[in-house]
């Protein structure tokens, strides 16, 4: 992870602005402070899952019900979710924004963590568009991700390239 400062409150502010109703998530070490901020936000329901592969189908169900969900899982969890991403996001034209923890990210690409090394090639292979957020300065990419998901009716990833700051 790089040393950009990313405040959970500013990300949650973006989610509220986008009208997000539910965050389906399996917490990881990088998102600890984000989780605390999310559960304190009354307009967003947090749905914890037992395994990352549940997150996309739950979000799909919420979308069918007219809600506006997002998911938040780590890159390792995205790999675990592969068949759900294929069948119940890409396969059903689901306009879903997925916040993916970029575990092992160093920006220069030289990392011993295979979870980081294969993340961007994985997304290219699966034809999933993505935006990288490494600090508060990058948060204007969040609305772009929502816009892209709606335009393409496809899942779009927001890669969180730093650990959320403590507030």
């Amino acid at each position: 992870m790089i040393n950009g400062i990313l405040h959970p409150a500013k990300v949650v502010e973006q989610l509220v602005r986008q009208g997000v109703t539910h965050m389906v998530t399996l917490p990881d070490s990088e998102t600890r402070h984000m989780y605390d901020r999310l559960v304190a936000e009354p307009s967003i329901h947090v749905i914890p899952v037992s395994r990352e592969g549940e997150a996309i189908p739950i979000a799909a169900g919420l979308w069918v019900a007219g809600q506006r969900p997002v998911i938040s899982i780590q890159n390792a969890g995205l790999y675990e979710s592969g068949d759900a991403l294929r069948g119940l996001a890409i396969g059903i034209d689901l306009p879903l924004v997925m916040f993916i923890g970029y575990r092992g990210h160093t920006r220069h690409g030289d990392t011993p963590d295979s979870a980081a090394r294969i993340l961007e090639p994985f997304l290219h292979l699966w034809r999933v568009d993505y935006y990288t957020v490494e600090s508060d300065d990058d948060l204007d990419r969040v609305p772009l991700a929502f816009e892209r998901a709606e335009q393409t009716s496809q899942p779009v990833a927001v890669l969180i390239g730093t650990e959320y700051a403590k507030e």
């Binding site: 899952v49 169900g61 068949d83 069948g87 119940l88 396969g91």
Partner: peptide
């Protein structure tokens, strides 16, 4: 198009409506 995910998708619908 997603064996095993019926219970998860149904949960999303149930929470949404």
């Amino acid at each position: 198009n997603g064996m095993s995910k019926a219970s998860s998708l149904a949960l999303g619908v149930a929470l949404g409506v």
